[in-house]
Nucleic acid binder design. Structure first.
Lengths: 234, 234
DNA sequence: GTGATCTGTCATGGATTTGTCATAAACTAT
DNA sequence: ATAGTTTATGACAAATCCATGACAGATCAC
C-alpha cells in the first residue's frame, strides 16, 4: 500500500492507546491518538484528517456514542468510518445505541489484535456503511435509518421491526456466515429463543426481498448458518 | 470439544503456578507448569506440545518477552498462541515489547480468573494459521473461514460440514498422526461412532481433493491412523 | 379491551449428508 | 505364497438439516 491509512484512536487510557498504536503501526497504519473528544473534534474538522476512528465507549468528557452522533450530524465527518471499542460488561441494550449512532462496527474488549486489524481493513475496504443521507444502500436495497424503513428500488416497503433489525445486521455484516446463535445474540437482548426462529425470519425476509430478486443474496450455508453475500450466487 | 486444550504456564513463583493450575483445570484445560524458560524451551520443541503458553513477564533466566521472541523466531513455535502475564507496575515501554514479540494477548495482575479464561478461549478460538483474510491456507488449499468454503487454487468449492471440520482439523494439525478415535473425538461431541466412519470420511475428503492432486498429502499410517503432511510423499 | 399485526414454536416433508455394512483390495508377517 | 490384518470403497440406510405451512402467543395501535 502506497499511502498509509490514518487511524485516530480516542481513548482515555494511555495504556490502551499505546497498545493499539503498537499493534496498528506495524500493520501499516499511521496512528494518531488522543485522550478526549474535545481534542478529537478539533482534529477532525480538517478535511480528510483521518481515514478511520477507533472510539472508546467510555470517555471522560463525553460518551463515545454521543461523540459519534455529533460526528454524524456534521457534514464533514458524516461519512467517517467509526469502529467502537466496548467493554464486555456493556449490555445488549447499549448496542442499540450503536445503530443509532451509525457506527460502522464495534469490537468488545478483550479483543485480539488480529481481529481488530481484520475489522479495520473490512471497514476501510467497504467504506462507510451509511451515506450522509442516513441510508444504508446495497444494490437495489436501502434502509432509511431515520425512518426505519426499507426501500427497494426507491419504493418504500413495509418492514417489521425484527426483519428490519435482521436486514440491518446483514447489510452491515456482509460476506460472512453467521450461525443462528450469533444472529440471535445480535438481534435479541435475552436470546433464549429456539434457533429455528431464525429460519422462520429468514424465510420472511426472503419473501419480502423475493419480488426484487434480492433474496438471492441471502444464502443458506448448510451446517453453518446464513450469509448475506455481496456477489450474487450462480 | 472433547480433547482438552493443553496450557503451559511458565512462572517462577510456585504460588502463582498453583493458583493458575487450580483455576484452569476445572475449566477443562490440561495444565503443565514450569518455573523457567530453559525447561519450557525444551518442552516446546516437541511438535504440538501445548496449545497455548501463559508466560510471566519476569522470569529468572530470561525475560518473558525475550523468550517469546525466541519462540517466534523458530518455525516450530512461530504460531504458538502466547498470553503474557504482566504486573500492573510497568506500563508503557512494556507494551511495545508485546507487539514486537507478537504476543497474542496480555493480562495484568491482579486479574480475575474469569477474565483469564475468557481471554484464553478467545485466543484459542481464533485458531493458529489463519491469515489476515480469514483463511487457513496450505499450498493449493485454503479454507475460507468466513464463507465456510474450501478453496482449491482460489476456486471456491462447496464442502459439507463434516468434511469442512475434518479438513480444518488436519490443516491446523499437520504432520502428526491421529488415530481414528482422536479424530472422532475432535469432530463430534458425543462420538460413539464406529471408527470405520473415519475411513469413509477420509475417502470422501480424498475424492474432493483428488482433482487438485492435494489428496496426496492426506496419508494413511497403517495400524495407527491418518496424517496430513506438509511434504508430499513420494 | 379488542383487533390487527408481528413473532416464535411446532410439525412435516424433502434434500442432503453422514454412518454402517459388506466385500474387495492392500499390506504384513511368517 | 498364504493366512491374517488393516484399509478402501460401493451400496444403502439412517440421521441431519432446512424450507415451509399452520397456528398460537405476544405486541402494538386505537
Amino acid at each position: 500500500m502506497s499511502t498509509q491509512n490514518k487511524i485516530l484512536i480516542v481513548d482515555d487510557e494511555a495504556a490502551i492507546r499505546t497498545m493499539l498504536r503498537c499493534a496498528l503501526e506495524p500493520a501499516g497504519f499511521t496512528v494518531i491518538d488522543l485522550a478526549d473528544c474535545t481534542q478529537a473534534w478539533r482534529l477532525l474538522q480538517a478535511k480528510n484528517a483521518v481515514d478511520l476512528l477507533l472510539l472508546d465507549w467510555m470517555l471522560p468528557d463525553q460518551s463515545g456514542i454521543e461523540f459519534a452522533k455529533r460526528l454524524r450530524a456534521q457534514l464533514a465527518t458524516a461519512d467517517l468510518p467509526i469502529i467502537m471499542l466496548t467493554a464486555k460488561a456493556e449490555e445488549r441494550n447499549k448496542l442499540k445505541g450503536l445503530e443509532e449512532a451509525r457506527v460502522d462496527d464495534y469490537i468488545t474488549k478483550p479483543f485480539s489484535i488480529r481481529e481488530l486489524i481484520a475489522r479495520i481493513n473490512t471497514v476501510l475496504r467497504r467504506g462507510p456503511v451509511q451515506n450522509h443521507e442516513g441510508r444504508i444502500q446495497f444494490a437495489a436495497l436501502a434502509l432509511n435509518l431515520d425512518h426505519k424503513t426499507l426501500l427497494i428500488n426507491n419504493q418504500e416497503i413495509n418492514i417489521t421491526p425484527k426483519l428490519y433489525a435482521i436486514l440491518y445486521f446483514f447489510l452491515t455484516h456482509r460476506d460472512k456466515v453467521y450461525t443462528r446463535q450469533q444472529l440471535l445474540d445480535n438481534l435479541a437482548a435475552d436470546s433464549f429463543y429456539d434457533e429455528r426462529t431464525i429460519d422462520r425470519q429468514i424465510k420472511r425476509l426472503r419473501d419480502l426481498l423475493e419480488p426484487s430478486g434480492m433474496a438471492d443474496y441471502l444464502i443458506t450455508v448448510r451446517g453453518h448458518g446464513y450469509q448475506f453475500t455481496s456477489k450474487k450466487q450462480c
